[in-house]
Write a protein that binds this DNA or RNA. Structure first.
Lengths: 218, 218
DNA sequence: GTCTATAGGACGATAGAC
DNA sequence: GTCTATCGTCCTATAGAC
């Protein structure tokens, strides 16, 4: 039997496989965490319940996440990334300007509505003691940037007033967007995007925003 | 020493005093509960921490509230009542119609911003396993009723379109209101009403609502 | 990377004496 | 209505064998 690849020249596949397997297990843990949070509430996740769901003993979990808060942080980070990716994907499929803003926000909203537990973790503060790390929070800042750039495009195209891309305009837009999502999450979870009492207001809310920042007369 | 009022004719003051003292203690418990929730998070309240704050033993608490959820329910009920009272008070000080709507919502918003912990309990779902009883939830329905009636007045006075008082109009209005409050609670707690990035949008949001439901031409 | 064992608590709630 | 005592349960996290 030849040396099986240990030592300095242990090769590239062994560690890769191990790392891949580890990532798969981490992903499985996070999936089960979401399932538990769905049943027990966002703040109701415990390492013990997570271990039961995985049919392993609690100490084994700590090989994958150093603490309960680290699980929340990774959920937060991946949730923000997925939300950002939804926004980008929606924007790519639309013409630059207000169309991109509306399409991006609709795509992000659809993502949030279909991931209500993660949305609560991202948009509210339901877990005592949890604060996302700067790294996990970064995609949220990128979302604001993306929207602001699209609003500048819209202003340049004469679709809205330049003030739409101001801090105040961004605050108005996020109020409309997260207001709709908050009302949905608190009062209308279960309805899907196209039938929700609040989510179906999406187009009207965008129109209200445009009316609030009409393009300057030329 | 005369008989101190026991027996069949024990009088009316004795029990009253006892009942009053009991209510004072309950109120003190609820005050401390809010303080703990401010420090530990809304979902971080425990009977043990409450007993420590009161310098009594945990079992004594159960003479005043039968369970931890009963504490949350009473906080929810009194919070809803206070919020309703703020709305009514604001509306009373304004002319009927949209002025009353705007003044009532501003007063309710000011109450929420100055009671952020209770506001989270009322507007979000942060406590695993807690659902308010119908009794505790009743004032929330009354708030909707009050606003809808004021919007009907506004429509009758030709200030807005009658659709403003429709289910959809109410959904839009609540989206604006709770969107502003949610954004404030999640991102800008600490700022007061007049200086908050979101709360200062109040008048603009009301104006956007009116623009969205302009009165029918006569 | 899995386990057993366990430290070391905190918690909700109840029983029963006073 | 206060206490002591306690039940039974849950928890996070670590130590150390394999």
């Amino acid at each position: 039997m030849p040396e099986s690849g240990r030592g300095p020249g242990q090769g590239t596949r062994g560690p890769d496989r191990r790392a891949r397997r580890r990532e798969e297990t981490r992903a499985q843990i996070l999936d089960l965490a979401v399932a538990i949070m769905t049943d027990e509430g966002v703040a109701g996740l415990s390492m013990a319940s997570l271990a039961r769901a995985l049919s392993i003993q609690p100490p084994s979990l700590y090989k994958y996440f150093p603490s309960r808060m680290a699980v929340y942080d990774e959920l937060f980070r991946q949730g923000q990334l997925a939300n950002l990716e939804a926004l980008r994907s929606g924007m790519r499929g639309a013409a630059p300007g207000m169309d991109a803003v509306a399409a991006g926000m609709e795509a992000a909203g659809r993502w949030a509505v279909s991931h209500p537990v993660l949305a609560q973790l991202l948009f509210w503060r339901p877990v005592p003691g949890f604060q996302p790390t700067a790294d996990a929070f970064a995609p949220a800042l990128e979302i604001v940037d993306q929207l602001r750039r699209a609003l500048r495009d819209a202003a340049a195209a004469g679709q809205v007033h330049p003030d739409a891309a101001s801090d105040q305009g961004m605050a108005v837009l996020s109020t409309l967007h997260f207001g709709m999502l908050s009302q949905h999450l608190a009062n209308d979870v279960g309805s899907d995007w196209d039938h929700g009492r609040y989510t179906r207001l999406h187009h009207q809310l965008i129109a209200m925003f445009v009316s609030a920042y009409p393009p300057a007369a030329r």
